[in-house]
Simulated assay, not measured.
Amino acid sequence: MWRREFLAVRSRLTAGVVEEAGAALAERALELPELTGAHTVAAYVSVGSEPGTRALLDALRARGVRVLLPALLPDNDLDWGSYTGEDSLVRVQHGGKMALFEPAGERLGPDAVTSADVVLLPGLAVDAHGMRLGRGGGSYDRVLARLERAGARPALVVLLYDTEVVARVPAEAHDRPVDAVVTPSGVRRFGAA
């Protein structure tokens, strides 16, 4: 129910609104001290009406940051590859799921994410405690569990629209809070992560 509602709101956004939000999101995110000092950032390429990430990916690269992007595996886990610009992406249709833009080059393995200083997470909402509501596929739950097992402590940042910061989202025992949410209007930090 929750996911359907957030996706329905997103589906009504115009391309212009999505593009404008992506530019503002990049501007706000690039002000984060965690990103200013980052050497490696695990990110993702937004699709459809997700808050746009392309401007942010290119700005990080321009700063000399190594940007890792996910490639969805058949079991919903994520492999990683390097982003070296628009021409390093390939559109991949995953069965009945949505088409994703993934790195076209060498795969670095699921553990490559453990080298990231910051992990930018997609989501549908985040609540007052930093709990993130994802799409429900479990891919990023696996990433967060992998980071925990490896003892890696990157900053966890979710990228959302302003209306997707809510009082509460449903959380399960395995869910982990994020450190911050970036929206087109600003940054909100959470103390729990």
Score class of each variant (00 low, 15 high):
76 N>P: 00
106 E>F: 06
159 L>Y: 05
81 G>F: 02
155 A>H: 14
149 R>P: 07
155 A>Y: 12
176 R>W: 04
95 G>A: 15
100 L>N: 08
181 V>G: 05
102 E>V: 13
170 P>V: 01
94 H>P: 02
128 A>F: 06
178 V>S: 00
117 D>T: 09
134 G>A: 05
109 G>L: 03
118 V>A: 02
138 G>T: 08
95 G>C: 09
159 L>D: 04
157 V>L: 09
161 Y>T: 04
118 V>R: 01
97 K>E: 05
111 D>A: 14
129 H>F: 03
127 D>W: 09
103 P>N: 05
100 L>Q: 13
183 T>N: 03
107 R>S: 14
112 A>S: 14
145 A>T: 13
122 P>W: 00
176 R>C: 00
179 D>E: 14
147 L>S: 02
103 P>H: 07
147 L>R: 02
156 L>Q: 01
106 E>Q: 15
115 S>Q: 15
93 Q>K: 15
106 E>H: 12
78 L>T: 07
82 S>G: 04
103 P>S: 05
72 L>K: 01
143 V>S: 11
97 K>H: 13
127 D>R: 07
143 V>H: 13
73 L>D: 14
119 V>G: 00
176 R>E: 08
87 D>K: 12
129 H>L: 12
132 R>W: 10
120 L>K: 10
89 L>R: 08
137 G>N: 08
155 A>W: 15
107 R>A: 12
119 V>T: 01
89 L>P: 11
181 V>W: 06
99 A>H: 01
85 G>A: 01
132 R>I: 10
103 P>W: 06
87 D>C: 03
97 K>A: 05
171 A>S: 15
162 D>L: 06
151 G>K: 11
80 W>L: 04
167 A>K: 12
